Amino acid sequence: MYFLSRELFFPSVNHASPEGIVAIGGDLSPERLLLAYRSGIFPWFEDDEPILWWSPPERMVLFFEDLKISKSMRNILNRNTFKITFNTSFKEVITNCRTIKRDGQPGTWITDEMVEAYCRLHELGYAKSVEVWQDDKLVGGLYGIDLGHIFCGESMFSKVSNASKIAFIALAKHLEKENYKLLDCQVHNDHLESLGATEILREDFLAILKS
């Protein structure tokens, strides 16, 4: 396992562990985080762990032509019950992603250090958010890193039914219109699969990332 020093460097993802850990340690400086995302790597760790840097052997992604919007979801969108904004309340979104209770998860991987680091990236124009509002209250959203041709989704939350799905769909449509190549969802979950995301091999993801 590669242990990072102060040097701004990551080893090749080809040397990752079978589950996808590329390196341990380092820091969450803007420079290191941007190098990580541009190399197909992301941080994911618990409060009591050192920083773990991942590039899983299979990557969950959404190709925009595969976006699935169910009939019931189309009906919800057509009612215009929700207002969608982009990049207007980043800190509120990441804070809600940090504190929202999730089934089967005792805590969160979004530590105080992570919140501070991604807020710095937001100030620099790289970390962005989607907000979903109902009756002027923030009820859902997501945030991630914008690489200009790929958006790396980090986390989402819902306070009312379907709010995170609405944020995801709005982001996918926006990215498709702006000619992005894909929406990176990082690791598999059933929620994302129901929206059309699929797993591709790490080498295929890296080829798109570097194209």
Rank of each mutant, 00 (worst) to 15 (best):
E113W: 08
S194H: 08
I100Y: 01
L183P: 00
W44V: 14
V13S: 03
G153C: 10
L8I: 15
W109N: 04
E46Y: 14
T81C: 04
Y180T: 08
L34Q: 05
M114L: 15
P50R: 10
G144N: 04
D112V: 14
L4Y: 12
S161T: 15
S39W: 14
R32F: 12
E58H: 10
I51C: 04
A167T: 12
S194Q: 06
M114W: 13
I200A: 05
E46C: 08
H15E: 13
H122T: 06
L171T: 08
G125V: 15
D136G: 03
A197M: 12
S39A: 09
P106A: 11
C185H: 09
K83C: 00
F9V: 15
Q134M: 15
L34M: 13
E123L: 10
N80V: 07
I41D: 07
V187P: 00
R32T: 06
L124W: 11
D112Y: 12
Q134A: 06
F90Y: 11
N162T: 09
T85G: 00
K173Q: 14
T99H: 03
R79Y: 01
L62R: 02
N179A: 13
I24F: 08
I200Y: 06
D66S: 12
M60F: 11
E178N: 10
M114N: 04
L33M: 12
H15L: 15
I69T: 05
K137N: 14
P57Q: 09
F45M: 08
I76F: 01
H149I: 13
F86T: 08
Y180E: 01
C97F: 09
L62I: 11
P57A: 05
I100W: 01
R59F: 01
T85L: 14
V139C: 08
K71M: 01
L62F: 06
S211H: 05
A197L: 13
L62H: 05
S5I: 12
C97E: 00
Y180M: 08
L206M: 03
E199A: 09
E31V: 14
D66V: 10
F168Y: 13
V13E: 01
E178T: 12
A127F: 12
Y180D: 01
M60S: 11
N87T: 11
F63L: 14
